[in-house]
């Protein structure tokens, strides 16, 4: 396990690797720009998109959906570290603050 991993696991989610987050934000920004361009192209392609509300809705829906998958993919590493490697996954109930929380060994092997 390299230092970077160790740091992020033990430090909690305050210490995301900033570089990666920055890159991901830039990617999201370009995603928006691309998106605008894509919908522009698709809108121009169907002259008078007002006459085809279905195409309008479909295009937005599919584009948003596909990009949502991409964004979900960007969270993969965080989710892996946070949700999978965490020693115990709760069903959703947060424990009361500071009570009976034992330090668990996070090192798998």
């Amino acid at each position: 396990m390299n230092n970077l991993e160790a740091k992020t696991i033990s430090g909690g989610f305050q210490q995301f690797s900033f570089r990666k987050v920055l890159f991901q934000l830039i990617l999201i920004f370009f995603g928006f720009a691309f998106l605008f361009f894509i919908t522009l192209i698709k809108a121009r392609g169907t002259a008078g998109i007002a006459f085809e509300p279905f195409l309008f809705v479909y295009t937005i829906f599919v584009t948003a959906f596909q990009i949502s998958r991409l964004i979900a993919a960007m969270f993969y590493e965080n989710a892996y570290r946070g949700s999978v490697l965490a020693p115990r996954a709760y069903n959703g109930a947060l424990p009361a603050k500071g009570k009976n929380i034992q330090k668990k060994n996070t090192n798998p092997l």
């Binding site: 361009f37 295009t59 991409l70």
Partner: peptide
């Protein structure tokens, strides 16, 4: 436009 739209999405990925 449909084809370009698809290629652009692919480019993003």
């Amino acid at each position: 436009y449909h084809v370009i739209g698809i290629l652009l999405l692919a480019a993003l990925f």
